[in-house]
């Protein structure tokens, strides 16, 4: 895949200051009708923590150096594989380009200085506001040898929800990837049997995406109708 942004099937390029995932307006979530609070004009953008620059601190630099070195040894350009590195709340996150995910994971697992033997599965996150990179797949890798934990994040556009499967590297991801497919529609290419796991086989849609409604029904209680949680007033 080329790095330029041609059409919608390629992830959008990264922003230096972290992705904007949405805009928050007003104060009390009164989106329909007048906002009498006086805060109606308040507009704030919501952005995820941006890229960090070196030094990352602690063992983070060591892991980053080793990973970059190991990728270079394989003839890869680390800058192409690692889109950005975020250090936030004492956690190290590598944002990896999806075409390099398997290579990076294999390196992280096998390199003696890295040795992230245990993958704790994949967690899908849907950011409808993060245009061009709506779906994120988040892996947490644990090294029992060194007692470390890092996060690897891969993002895909909603139109092209494909990313390579990590089952060949971490067989434990089998069910986790099926779960992420079931709930978010992420297609893990190369997975041995990517079928629904939680929902019935004939279920329509991917229920934990943000554009899928919660599906609650209004409840009648003591003469009043109480709407489903997603229909109630929320606070923005």
């Amino acid at each position: 895949m080329s790095d330029e942004h041609n059409g919608s099937s390629v992830p959008a390029p990264r922003d230096e200051h972290g992705e904007v995932i949405g805009v928050r307006r007003g104060m009390f979530g009164a989106n329909n009708g007048g906002d009498t609070s006086g805060y109606g004009g308040l507009v704030r953008t919501v952005a995820l923590p941006g890229a960090s620059s070196r030094p990352y601190g602690g063992w983070f630099d060591e892991v980053a150096d080793e990973l970059e070195g190991a990728l270079e040894e394989q003839g890869l350009v680390p800058e192409n594989a690692i889109e950005k590195t975020v250090v936030d709340r004492d956690e190290l996150t590598f944002h990896i380009a999806r075409e390099h995910l398997v290579n990076v994971a294999k390196t992280l697992r096998d390199d003696p200085a890295l040795r992230f033997e245990l993958c704790t599965g994949v967690s899908g996150v849907h950011f409808p506001g993060d245009k061009g990179r709506e779906l994120h797949a988040v892996y947490h890798l644990r090294s029992l040898t060194h007692g470390r934990l890092i996060r690897v994040e891969v993002s895909t556009p909603d139109e092209d929800r494909h990313l390579p499967s990590l089952v060949p590297v971490y067989p434990t991801n089998d069910w986790h990837e099926r779960e992420a497919y079931d709930f978010f529609g992420l297609v893990f290419d190369g997975h041995p049997a990517l079928t629904r796991i939680m929902m019935p086989d004939d279920w329509q849609g991917f229920p934990q995406r943000k554009d899928y409604p919660l599906g609650g029904i209004p409840v009648e209680y003591k003469g009043a109708q109480i709407p489903a949680p997603d229909q109630r007033r929320s606070y923005s």
């Binding site: 229920p207 609650g216 029904i217």
Partner: peptide, 13 residues
């Protein structure tokens, strides 16, 4: 009896 606190897509109400 009623779906309880899980008023959502997955549980029979």
């Amino acid at each position: 009896s009623s779906g309880g606190m899980f008023n959502n897509y997955a549980i029979v109400q």
